[in-house]
Amino acid sequence: MIYLNAFIFAGLVCLIGQIILDNTKLTPGHVTTMFVVIGAFLDIFSIYDKIVKWAGGGALVPITSFGHLLIHGALVKAKKYGFVGLMMGMFDLTSSGIIAAIIISFFLSLIFKPKS
């Protein structure tokens, strides 16, 4: 059942992205940025946490989860250290993804040549 939920949620997010891309002049960069902000916004009221419970991996795959993880890590530290904690914990949960992307793309760009 969770696979169906994952399919529906991830599919819907991508569908919304495609509708925005088709009907406006926004670039994919705008759309991904917008989704990150929406993902962070939904966590003010813990909505995204519920979606993650409902859709599992389907909610973690779209870029909205990036915003969710940013604010989530920040809030965990903020409980302990207050306002400074927001800054301390911001990258706690997302650092693995960002660092993996940096390291992998650095070494792959040394190995491969761009196709022109």
């Binding site: 991508c14 991996g57 389907g58 779209p62």
Partner: peptide, 9 residues
């Protein structure tokens, strides 16, 4: 996109 979600799970 839905398939990507299922792959993620």
């Amino acid at each position: 996109g839905g398939s990507m979600g299922v792959v993620g799970e």
